[in-house]
Design a protein around this nucleic acid. Structure first.
Lengths: 207, 207
DNA sequence: AGAATAGTGTCTGTGAGACAGTATGGT
DNA sequence: ACCATACTGTCTCACAGACACTATTCT
């Protein structure tokens, strides 16, 4: 028996939990931060999209597969949040869930129902906690960078950027303070937005 | 067949990776931030203490068990950092590693060898990355709170607290600025440290 | 001209950073 | 008296927050 085969055999002694991924898909719709939910036809209970990890698959790919198959969502960059490991979290057995977050534009939620963050409570499993983790992470991200999740199409105005930040933060922001804070982190295209009412706004890109 | 049994059976269809925990045990020794390492007798390679998750065990308990059995360390509060899931990260097979951090006082490292952070490179598996995650997390923690990991015995002076922060940050801090920053987060005991040279320092507790 | 929105001038408060001074113990 | 350490006064700088003002377009 080769050393490699011996080592492989030694691993079989260890218990193997099922490993799942569950993903809070966040977006901004109508000025509000929303999360994408699935509703079970039988139980009417709401939950986040998820799946079991397949053999030879990394977590981020399992997240992408679950979003593609269950909601038709493509081209996301999942971010890992936390492992939920309570022994009784899934009545089907011993299942670890690796919570993830993904951020998409409002028109890319696919088959998921958008629920404003405040309404996304009472979800199945420990999915309420996953949503809280995701929102906290997204707020930290947007505190540091202008648009880390690419929610805006370039070029954009500072007012458009501010509306995204207001949705993420769940609060109104001072236009002048916000402008001064993000301006050093943006590239000025020199172009102006045309066609609207009022003074035309400058158009910017991510730095 | 009961619904419960049906569901249990359905879980058996899914691949189950082995799940391990690996823990960066951090401490401050001689004014430097150190991590506790094990050295493999055969290969002389250094690594973090870890173990495989046992059936019916939660991750934090697996971390506690591994530290108790491999190093004699007790009474730690593990913090979860990240799941490492590269398919080729462990030559023995498909193993997910849930990286953790634990912080202990300098005299509580047990059988682990303390290596200053800067020297803890070239470790086995992806343990270099785990150390980086742990150091980053600890620095964020100490930026926000005076002594979140209980490294000091109460009561303590502000100079003692500053020395811990300097070790964690890996940089010298201005005594006056540091004092003013942490003072509102501490409880003044009213007592003074006696016996040393110079003006006696005030003694404080965590708020 | 007036409405609407973009952008700026400026004041205030807060807090980090730094330097120099004062305070209070030991030897 | 002197040293060592603790603590404070104070200046500067940067930046958030807020208010009022100016600027530029469309109708």
């Amino acid at each position: 028996m080769s050393t490699r085969a011996k080592r492989d055999a030694s691993l079989t002694n260890y218990a193997r939990p099922s490993v799942a991924v569950d993903t809070a898909v966040l977006t901004v719709r109508d000025g509000r931060l929303c999360v994408g939910l699935l509703t079970d036809e039988r139980t009417r209970r709401r939950r986040l999209p998820g799946t079991f990890l397949h053999e030879g698959e990394v977590l981020a790919d399992a997240v992408r597969r679950s979003l593609r198959e269950k909601a038709g969502i493509r081209d996301v960059e999942p971010a890992q949040l936390h492992v939920f490991d309570a022994l009784d979290r899934d009545s089907r057995g011993w299942v670890l869930s690796v919570a993830h977050m993904a951020v998409v534009r409002a028109d890319a939620l696919g088959a998921l129902d958008a629920a404003p963050i405040a309404d996304a409570v009472g979800l199945d499993f420990d999915h309420d906690a996953i949503v809280r983790f995701a929102v906290e992470r997204l707020r930290l991200d947007y505190d540091k960078h202008p648009d880390p999740a690419d929610l805006l199409t370039e070029p954009f105005t500072i007012a458009e950027l501010r509306e995204v930040h207001e949705a993420v933060a769940g609060a109104l922001l001072q236009p002048d303070t916000f402008r001064r804070r993000v301006l050093p982190q943006l590239l000025d295209t020199g172009d102006m937005q045309r066609g609207g009412v009022g003074k035309p706004a400058g158009l910017f890109r991510r730095a």
